[in-house]
Simulated scan of single mutants.
Amino acid sequence: MNISFFLAAYTNAIFSNDELLKSPTYLLGDIAEIRSGITLGRPLTGKTVSLPYLRVANVQDGYLDLSIIKEVSLLESEVDKWKLKFGDLLLTEGGDLDKLGRGTIWRGQIKNCIHQNHIFRLRVNTNEFYPEFLAAVIGSPTGKTYFQAASKQTTNLASINQRQLKAFPVFKPSLPAQKRILNKLEHIRSKIDDFRTLQSQTTAKIDALLPSILDKAFKGEL
């Protein structure tokens, strides 16, 4: 079973339901504050401080890889400008074509953390949107199709800019409707995780039995 295909099909069905399609639509730039991160290696004049920052390698599809965190120097006066806040949505600006729209939610895992300029930070009014809902829309098959079509592409690589990101259309259902969608997605992802665990356990059992089976086959005992 192609689990990724199944999840994509289910997600696409959720974001194609009548309730969502009848919701008002806005451009992402009108509902979210979008900012790229700090440029590395800038000349600095004034009092500086060194802070941890997120690189593109840290921002994966649906999670953060925080195994390696580096630091960068910036002006003390810039800290509030760049500092990430709980609930910020992080998106990479480019990479492999199938990874456009890759991102996840910042949960305040590292104190006073910022992000580099190849990562977009989206901040929404949580009275109108769940950041998780926005992340799900952007990461949906429809979202990935948009970014692939809008991106600047070279051999095996693609990138998006702020203008293209701001032009991304977003449905705005009510908060309860957003929550229902998120619950459905969480339910199917939980089931898929259970299936993957079972699949892994079954594979491990087969691998453990294989030497014995081959030994019996060579001895003509099968």
Rank of each mutant, 00 (worst) to 15 (best):
T203V: 08
P173W: 11
R163E: 06
P131C: 15
T154Q: 04
I160F: 05
Q164E: 14
L185Q: 00
D194V: 06
K205F: 06
L175F: 05
Q148K: 15
S140F: 06
L165V: 12
Q162G: 09
F133A: 06
T202N: 10
F168G: 03
P176A: 02
L157A: 07
A158N: 05
T155M: 07
F133R: 04
N125Q: 10
Q199P: 07
A135F: 00
T203H: 12
Q164V: 07
P173I: 08
R189T: 00
A177S: 08
K205W: 06
I192D: 00
A136H: 00
L165K: 10
R189M: 01
H187P: 00
A149T: 10
T154H: 03
N161S: 07
N125D: 15
Y146N: 02
H187S: 13
Q178Y: 02
V137P: 02
T126W: 01
S190N: 09
P169D: 08
F133G: 04
Q164T: 11
P169I: 08
L157G: 05
I188A: 01
I138D: 01
F133E: 04
S140Y: 03
K184Q: 14
T203N: 13
D193G: 11
K152L: 09
S200N: 12
A167E: 11
E128K: 09
Q148I: 07
Q162K: 14
I138E: 00
I181S: 12
T145F: 14
K179I: 05
F129M: 05
Q148A: 12
I181R: 02
T202E: 04
G143Y: 06
P173D: 11
K166R: 12
L198T: 12
Y146E: 05
Y130F: 15
F133V: 02
D194R: 10
D194N: 13
E186G: 05
Q199T: 11
P176T: 10
K172I: 01
G143F: 05
G139E: 00
S159A: 15
A135S: 14
S151I: 03
I192W: 00
K152C: 04
I188N: 03
K166I: 01
P176W: 02
K172T: 09
S151K: 08
K191E: 13
S174W: 01
A150K: 13
L198R: 11
A204M: 14
F129H: 03
A158T: 04
I181V: 15
I160P: 00
Q164P: 04
F195Y: 14
T202F: 03
S200H: 14
Q199W: 12
N127F: 12
N156W: 08
E132Q: 12
I206S: 07
Q199R: 15
R196A: 09
G139C: 02
D193P: 04
A167M: 04
I181D: 04
F171M: 05
P141F: 10
F171D: 01
Q153D: 02
A149S: 13
A204K: 12
P141Y: 11
A177F: 11
S140C: 02
A149P: 01
E132P: 07
Q201M: 12
S190Q: 12
A135D: 02
F168Q: 07
P131M: 09
R196Q: 15
Q201V: 08
E128P: 00
A177K: 13
N125M: 09
K205P: 03
L185S: 01
K184R: 12
V137F: 00
T197A: 15
N156Y: 13
D193Q: 15
P176C: 01
Q164M: 13
A158I: 00
